[in-house]
């Protein structure tokens, strides 16, 4: 329990946060290899959590007009259109329809492909948003998830730049910060979160985190064997910079392609060093002040001592000359 409260592997965050008899930690495993981009998850999340509409615009970003996670968008389905590095394996018997513009320049004989991924708050083991929240509004639930208390948050906005994934945000018209709660209310009633319930392909899987990690390890091996060399897990590793994510992913390309940071770190890891440097800087400031009050008089004393020594010497010389 000790030693890893700021960073590093931490097997039981809810007990460390003071919960007794906590249920097993739950999470999401989002397997993007089966996502069909239907956005049922986005809609279910908006519906269940009664999130306000936050912009109806045409983005020009493939089929992604949502664009990003925000205070009022807690699931965001990313769409990436790219030329696949090599032929994409097609399951037996699936009809292949030609994609418009598949022969676009620069495809190097590869095929066009879509990557779709439903992004969400990662419910970090070491959540920077929670660490820096000055009001205690953000807290760790008994399920190991991270939730904002709307009646406590005063909209200081500190959690926003602290999150290494750019998840939590202040709602402009409201001022307070909002993000995915992993449907805390549904968990309490023994239900799975709305997005996982709505997902028709089981791209979003909900369950005890340990089980999900095992399942994900099997799935990535399976995909690798089937020739999907780009398949990789993201956020599954308790050794990573945030101690592992409560919501982790199976991706088919580099994380940055999906708008995810390649090596996120909980900044609080460096907080002890920062306080030390700030302490040293404060001491330096005080020392500089003391110096400023002593140095001028020391210099003046030295100068007058030198001057009197010089005049004494010249007087002596003059005296010598007269003799």
């Amino acid at each position: 329990m000790k030693g890893n409260l700021l960073s590093g592997p931490e097997p039981d965050p809810s007990t460390d946060a003071g919960h007794t008899d906590a249920p097993p930690r739950v999470g999401f495993f989002t397997d993007t290899s089966v996502c069909i981009g239907c956005k049922a998850c986005e809609v279910a999340c908006k519906e269940w959590n009664a999130l306000p509409e936050d912009g109806l615009s045409f983005s020009g970003m493939s089929y992604d007009n949502t664009q990003a996670l925000s205070a009022s968008t807690w699931r965001h389905v990313a769409f990436i259109e790219q030329s696949a590095p090599s032929a994409v394996p097609t399951p037996e018997g699936r009809a292949e329809l030609p994609l418009a513009g598949a022969e676009a320049p620069g495809t190097d004989g590869g095929q066009m492909r879509w990557l779709m991924s439903s992004d969400v708050c990662k419910h970090c083991t070491h959540a920077a948003c929670l660490d820096v929240c000055p009001t205690g509004s953000l807290f760790r639930t008994e399920y190991g998830t991270v939730v904002v208390q709307e009646d406590i948050c005063n909209g200081c906005g500190y959690c926003v730049p602290a999150c290494p994934y750019g998840v939590i945000e202040q709602r402009p018209a409201d001022g307070r910060a909002f993000k995915c709660t992993m449907c805390y209310d549904r968990l309490g009633a023994g239900q799975e979160p709305a997005c996982a319930k709505a997902c028709p392909t089981e791209s979003i899987q909900f369950g005890p985190l340990d089980e999900l990690r095992e399942r994900a390890a099997l799935r990535v091996d399976q995909l690798q064997e089937a020739g999907v060399t780009g398949a990789r897990l993201y956020g599954h590793d308790p050794q990573d910079g945030v101690g592992g994510d409560g919501a982790f992913f199976l991706l088919l390309d580099e994380p940055a392609v999906y708008g995810l940071p390649p090596d996120p770190q909980v900044t609080t890891r460096d907080l002890p060093a920062m306080w030390r440097h700030a302490g040293a800087a404060g001491v330096a400031l005080a020392a500089g002040t003391v110096l400023s009050f002593t140095l001028p008089s020391v210099l003046r004393a030295a100068a007058s001592a030198a001057a009197s020594a010089a005049s004494a010497a010249s007087a002596a010389l003059r005296g010598g000359g007269a003799r």
Partner: peptide
């Protein structure tokens, strides 16, 4: 002196690259 320097930690304890990257020097 604490009031004058803690603000550097306030900025540096975020994921903002130009602030956190300089968390040692900013104070």
């Amino acid at each position: 002196p604490a009031v004058a320097t803690y603000t550097a930690v306030l900025a540096a304890d975020t994921a903002v690259p130009a602030w956190h990257g300089a968390h040692r020097e900013l104070p």
